[in-house]
Design a protein around this nucleic acid. Structure first.
Lengths: 330, 330
DNA sequence: AGCTTCGCAGAAATCGATTTCAGACTCAAG
DNA sequence: CTTGAGTCTGAAATCGATTTCTGCGAAGCT
């Protein structure tokens, strides 16, 4: 493997000059040519480790997310990766499984690998990004804000999404609408449930019957058991808002298994149904622009890396209702 | 940020001693204690960049895949990440979009970042891993073999999977079974189609009618247009084998849109249907153990990194039929 | 006692780049 | 002709760890 010294020797100049040529600092055209030719003929690639050590900053950013198998996050990851790569950075994807300890571990690594920045979808209530900030590293929160630190953030309008999903069911004539949301400590889950409650409070004269809000695990299994629980009630609801895409999948599975038609039993899902074969007219979906979530976060991160100072900026991206419901309550 | 010198100064020893303590080389217990205390009180973390530069080997491995939004690969990624992290390595996920140039770029980076190894799902017909091998880096191919280099590989038994999918339809009574496979240059696609052709040749007295094998893009859109094409034929088939998970999703979407019941029009899918609400009895699926694909590849990679020598090892993992079909031809 | 052997620890070299510093040289103005 | 500013360039310092080299002192052997 050729090093900068080899190139320098072949070109008959000093390593310093080689470095200057390769980094577009002023060098006489004659030597520049020599260096470029030498570099090409040795097919020289600068060693990024050495560069990072000296510069104290690598061209890598970390993307720390709780669940890489959730299409919500893969799509987000795409967005981040695209903007980052455009700006010349590689992206390291770190999967925390929602485990705060794993997350802390990855943040440690980001620090000791001198990574330029971190896009973080926090796993739990508190994430310790202070060490990163102290070292001047860029940090952007995505999907969920970071508590206790003034950090750029990009999130969905979750209350609005909860309202939209609930409204589409209400407008279609459903009157007893339950909500399967996520764990209490995840703010996105709380906000979506809040939107559901808000909207029902506005449109419905009656109080919400007890037991209509369920806190499920935000995965397929969580959606399944919550849906089963709802259907097994003595007085089941006639419609349900699924708090995220995976919960929606689980709920739909249960409906199918019980021979219930999603075109009669109402269901609206917050978040896109991945790879679904359902017609949007049967299962309305609040589309969450995850890709833009990612690109926006990536853009903010790059700006910070390139020197943007100042207080945290907070971007809220609205969801978008894909279709209205044509079916009627069963 | 504390460096090894700070620790050394505080402990009253040389940096060399600190390094020895932290790397479990023999040091007197007295000094070891001093060093550990000093390290803890400064909350010292070794700088991985410096370590990598000196050791000429980082604790990072790259996973290079063509499509991170395909659950096949996310699940595989999980597998690789789990084994790698168990062994103390971080995983960098690189998405090539099936683009050979991007892939080459990532391999370059892996080299110049001194990464310990690469798990590669090759994007195209040829991938140049020679530079990596020359530098003694570990390389393992996954899902598709690397041509022109003697590299460990872990692949699915694609011919077998194609046969299994076809057989389940045949056994259920379907007699005109088409196949939507993937692009010609992807060997997995070719092999799955081969399995389909083989099995039909064995069980069917008649020749396969022309136009029954389609080469689609291996994504949802590809499956959709291929399925539409098949259904628009004058004499459409009565069943279809979907060459991968996404093609299966696309095909199912089209069936739904046209009001065709997958329990009547036969469809078998090679690869798991992600987040599907279908009953397995209606849509048989050849389960591909993608997670083990990943863990196996990861294990081979770690072995290579830790010094395993010798010729390329080739693991073939069989698919597995989830359920037999209870429905009958429509 | 004298000599080897061994374990431990510090000084210094090393990994491969970037960057500071200082010297050599050119050119223009006084 | 001298001085000063400005341009290139190379030597050397630097980033932060690991590892080799070297020396010291204690223990073992004859």
């Amino acid at each position: 493997m050729a090093t900068i010294k080899d190139v320098a020797a072949l070109a008959g100049v000093s390593p310093a000059t080689v470095s200057r040529v390769l980094n577009n600092r002023p060098v006489s055209p004659t030597k520049a040519r020599l260096v470029l030719d030498a570099a090409r003929s040795l097919s020289y690639t600068p060693n990024r480790v050495a560069r990072t050590l000296r510069r104290q900053l690598s061209e890598v950013v970390a993307l720390v997310i709780p669940d890489i198998e959730n299409p919500f996050f893969t799509s987000l990851a795409r967005g981040v990766a695209d903007t980052a790569q455009e700006a010349g950075y590689s992206v390291v994807l770190c999967n925390t499984d929602g485990d705060v300890a794993k997350e802390a571990h990855f943040l440690d690594i980001a620090l000791s690998e001198n990574m330029a920045g971190v896009v973080l979808a926090p796993a739990g209530a508190s994430s310790d990004v202070q060490p990163l900030l102290n070292r001047g590293r860029a940090v952007v929160a995505v999907d969920r804000p970071v508590r206790g630190a003034d950090v750029d953030s990009v999130v969905i309008d979750n209350v609005g999404a909860g309202r939209a999903a609930t409204r589409v069911l209400w407008d279609a004539g459903y009157r007893d609408i339950a909500c399967i949301s996520g764990p209490d400590e995840i703010v996105t889950a709380v906000d979506r449930a809040l939107g559901w409650r808000q909207l029902l409070g506005e449109v419905s004269p009656r109080a919400i019957p007890p037991g209509r809000l369920l806190h499920a695990d935000f995965r397929v299994g969580g959606g399944r058991s919550a849906m089963q629980q709802l259907l097994d009630l003595e007085n089941p609801p006639d419609a349900v808002v699924a708090g995220n895409n995976l919960v929606g999948v689980g709920a739909l599975q249960v409906l199918h298994e019980r021979g219930l038609d999603p075109a009669r039993f109402g269901i609206a899902v917050i978040g896109d149904l991945p790879f679904s074969a359902h017609a949007p007219a049967d299962v309305p979906v609040v589309h969450l622009p995850t890709r833009s979530l990612g690109t926006t976060a990536g853009a903010l991160l790059i700006e910070r890396i390139e020197g943007h100072e100042g207080p945290g900026r907070h971007v809220v991206i609205p969801g978008e209702l894909g279709a209205t419901l044509t079916a009627a309550p069963g």
